[in-house]
Amino acid sequence: MPKIIDHDQYRKELLLKAFDLFAERGYGSLTMRQLAQGLGVSTGTLYHYFQSKEDLFLKLMAELAQQDFREVEMTMAAAGETLEERVEAIFRWVESREELFLKQVLLSISFYQEQHNSQELVNGSQLLSTLNEGYRNLSKQYLGIEDPDLIQMLDALLGGLVLSRVFCLEKVSFQRQGQLLGKMLRAYVERHCRDRASQLN
């Protein structure tokens, strides 16, 4: 009796194994043939699941994002109710996955360096747009942040903290930064509410 293969599950397994190869060697230095060898499959099998190395990479980023979304949901389910508590919970979660996030950031940089027109790719990629929208929705849903500028600031701060802990001699504390940002956001939201109330009166 032929073996039944769950193709979706097998595709995910290939993606997650490919992440380690990409993280170790960088996007640009790997070919599909080398990826197939590292994964222990034939090149034909890899092309059966992925059209190209770029296709594989983008689907890998999508799979990692979906994992992030699920973990944030669990993290927020156990977090407190106040904005400050929820911001601090997000920062603790990022800190717990710091090594993985650092690999993702550095790998993304490697990927964009390899592209001849990376800005066109970023602007034109439906997948990347969808992932960015997913992260924005997380901020809206779990932190109650509607202001797109605040959402961008939060994303930039978290990404910057991950990188700064690599390049700075002094480790920046995720906990202190989370507490500080929580206080700043609370003050901003309270002032925004007062301003809106005074405009209505």
Rank of each mutant, 00 (worst) to 15 (best):
M1E: 13
M1A: 14
I4M: 14
I5Q: 12
I5R: 15
D6H: 13
D6K: 11
D8K: 07
Q9S: 13
Y10S: 05
R11Q: 15
K12L: 09
E13H: 12
L15K: 02
L16I: 05
K17G: 04
L21H: 09
F22A: 03
F22V: 00
A23L: 02
R25L: 02
R25M: 03
G26D: 13
Q34H: 01
L35F: 09
A36W: 01
G38E: 15
L39S: 10
V41Q: 10
V41R: 12
G44F: 12
G44W: 02
T45H: 08
T45V: 10
L46K: 01
Y47G: 02
H48F: 11
H48C: 01
Y49I: 05
F50Y: 14
F50W: 09
Q51K: 15
S52W: 04
S52A: 08
S52E: 12
K53I: 00
D55W: 09
L58C: 06
K59P: 06
L60Q: 10
M61D: 13
L64H: 02
Q66N: 15
Q66M: 11
F69L: 15
A77G: 06
A78P: 00
G80Y: 07
E84I: 07
E85H: 03
A89K: 08
A89Y: 00
I90R: 05
F91S: 05
F91R: 05
R92D: 15
W93A: 09
E95H: 07
E95W: 02
R97K: 13
E99P: 03
E99M: 01
E99H: 09
L102V: 01
L102I: 00
L102F: 08
Q104C: 09
V105E: 06
L106G: 06
S108L: 15
I109N: 11
Y112C: 07
E114Q: 12
Q115E: 07
Q115T: 05
Q119P: 01
L121W: 04
N123K: 10
N123S: 11
G124Y: 04
S125Y: 07
S125E: 02
Q126E: 14
N132H: 10
G134D: 09
Y135R: 10
Y135V: 06
R136A: 05
R136F: 12
L143S: 01
E146T: 09
D149G: 11
L150G: 01
I151V: 13
Q152G: 04
Q152E: 14
L154R: 06
L154Y: 06
L157R: 09
G159F: 02
G159K: 06
G159W: 00
L161D: 07
V162D: 01
F167H: 11
E170S: 08
S173R: 08
R176V: 06
Q177R: 13
L181C: 11
K183Y: 08
K183E: 15
A187F: 05
Y188M: 04
Y188E: 07
V189Y: 12
E190A: 04
E190Q: 14
R191A: 11
H192K: 15
D195P: 00
A197T: 05
Q199K: 13
Q199H: 06
